[in-house]
């Protein structure tokens, strides 16, 4: 088992400000992150994920308590020493005209270069390795203002990699990205943790992605932060606390989050596997509960040589629909 690289002891976080302005978000935090581990921070908006990440990265001062890297308190670190241990990617992705991807990544060498900022051959090597690791080599000469959001996020991660730190902290690295890009970024982080032994902390609102890709979750609830493997948090039901006071439920079997429904009608549904599954989802959306057949109104779904048919039946007449959309249009006129 890997050693704990980043730990906190009785850490209090929040915003400074004289007297009454001080806002304490959490106190007495004892958290730990191991080498090669990827940890996802999950919580509602304003729950303090960013504040914790910024505190761990040394950007915000802790209100109380201490942070240790390899059992050494970061209070004893000089700025540059800390910057060689911890890198940070914020939610802010700067768009600077005339700054190329390789120039951006080179900025990550700041804590390693002398006062002139000139890059040594070693620095240049590290920059190139970082660019290759996130697969943006083909973009290195391009201005960062002219590449896509996903590519820019990769470039920002490459910049953090160039900083050559053992701990990487990322605040919502998948925000504003499309689904394939979100997974790409997470796969990249996973690779960096597993293959390069980096300790990676990231916050996200994409629960599905965090649950698939993180070794451990730090779950931000009102009073404290609960940690564990994603599956542990589901099995011990802690995860559900995230949806208190909201209209969402977590489907334990399907592993998906969905809005709680209230139904205004019933429909007997018969059909096979996937066809039935997706039809039921559509019915639930328009407020119709799917139950077993032999109701006043019944629906049977058939696949006749690849042609899909939805037959709606009330013992007297039968209506045939060729798509779920048509079916729902009709059902909406009945229930209203």
């Amino acid at each position: 088992m890997h050693k704990e690289i980043l730990t906190t002891k009785s850490l209090s976080i929040g915003y400074e400000g004289g007297g009454k302005n001080q806002k304490r978000l959490f106190s007495g935090l004892n958290l730990a992150c191991r080498k090669g581990e990827i940890i996802g921070l999950i919580g509602r908006n304003g729950s303090g994920k960013s504040t914790l990440l910024k505190t761990l990265a040394g950007i915000i001062e802790p209100l109380d308590g201490n942070i240790f890297i390899n059992d050494l308190s970061i209070k004893g670190f000089k700025r540059r020493e800390l910057a060689r241990q911890v890198s940070f990617v914020s939610t802010e992705v700067p768009v600077i005209p005339n700054l190329s991807v390789s120039e951006l990544v080179s900025l990550g060498r700041y804590p390693h270069t002398d006062w002139t900022g000139r890059l040594s051959p070693e620095d240049i090597k590290q920059v190139n390795i970082s660019i290759d690791q996130v697969d943006v080599g083909y973009l290195s000469g391009k201005p960062i203002a002219e590449i896509s959001d996903g590519e820019r996020q990769r470039a920002m991660i490459a910049r953090a990699l160039a900083q050559d730190t053992r701990i990487m902290i990322l605040d919502e690295p998948t925000a504003f990205l499309d689904l394939p890009n979100k997974y790409e970024i997470l796969r990249l982080l996973n690779h960096l943790a597993a293959k390069k032994g980096k300790a990676i902390l990231f916050s996200t609102h994409d629960l599905g992605i965090a649950f698939h890709e993180a070794d451990k979750i730090w779950l931000f609830l009102d009073e404290n932060i609960i940690t564990g493997a994603p599956e542990d948090l589901i099995l011990n039901k802690k995860f559900f606390k995230l949806f208190d006071n909201s209209s969402l439920t977590f489907d334990l079997v399907k592993g998906e989050i969905r809005p709680e429904r209230s139904f205004t009608g019933k429909l007997g549904v018969s059909g096979e596997g996937i066809l039935k599954l997706w039809t039921v989802r559509a019915l639930e959306r328009i407020g119709i509960e799917a139950v077993d057949k032999d109701q006043e109104l019944n629906l049977s779904i058939d696949d006749i040589d690849g042609e899909l048919l939805w037959r709606l039946n009330d013992y007297k007449t039968e209506l045939i629909f060729h798509s779920i959309y048509e079916l729902c249009l009709h059902l909406k006129t009945i229930i209203n």
Binding site: G58, A83, R84, V86, S87, T113
Partner: peptide, 23 residues
């Protein structure tokens, strides 16, 4: 001219500059 290194880092904003060890 002595501040070239710092000025370049200021481009990314102060949060990043701080995270890279700049005073």
């Amino acid at each position: 001219m002595i501040q070239v290194k710092q000025l370049n880092l200021f481009l990314l904003g102060e949060t990043y500059a701080k995270s890279m060890g700049m005073n």
